[in-house]
Amino acid sequence: MANTYSQLYAHVIFAVKNREALIREEFKEELYKYISGIVNHKGQKLFAINGMPDHIHILLSLSPDCPLSELVREIKKSSNGFIKEKGLSKFPFAWQAGYGAFSIGASQISKVVNYIENQEKHHTKKSFEDEYRSFLENYQVDFKDEYLFEFFDN
Rank of each mutant, 00 (worst) to 15 (best):
D130E: 14
E26D: 15
L46C: 09
Y115C: 01
Y132L: 11
D153W: 08
A101F: 10
D54Q: 03
W95I: 15
V112Y: 07
A101P: 04
K125P: 00
S110F: 08
F135K: 10
F143A: 02
N114M: 12
S78D: 06
I104G: 01
P67R: 10
F82P: 00
L31V: 05
G87C: 01
V113F: 05
F135Y: 14
L59M: 11
E131A: 02
N138Q: 09
E117P: 00
E129R: 15
G43M: 03
F102L: 05
N118S: 12
A10S: 08
F135N: 09
E120W: 09
Y9R: 02
S103P: 03
N118D: 06
S89W: 00
H55N: 09
N50W: 02
L31F: 10
Y9T: 08
G43H: 05
F47I: 12
L8I: 15
L31A: 03
L59T: 05
E25T: 12
A48L: 06
F135C: 08
Y9E: 05
K86N: 14
D145W: 07
F82I: 04
S127V: 04
A94N: 15
F102P: 01
K17N: 09
N18E: 14
A15P: 00
T124W: 12
Y132S: 02
Q108K: 12
N50R: 12
P67C: 06
L71T: 04
N114E: 12
L8Y: 07
Q140K: 09
Y139A: 15
H122Y: 13
M52T: 13
G51I: 03
E150C: 11
E29Q: 15
E117S: 13
F151S: 00
L60D: 04
S110T: 13
I75Q: 00
R73W: 09
A2G: 09
G51Q: 10
K144C: 07
V72I: 14
E29I: 08
N80A: 13
H57A: 04
Q96E: 15
I83T: 06
K77F: 11
E131S: 04
P92T: 03
N154G: 11
S69Q: 13
S61L: 06
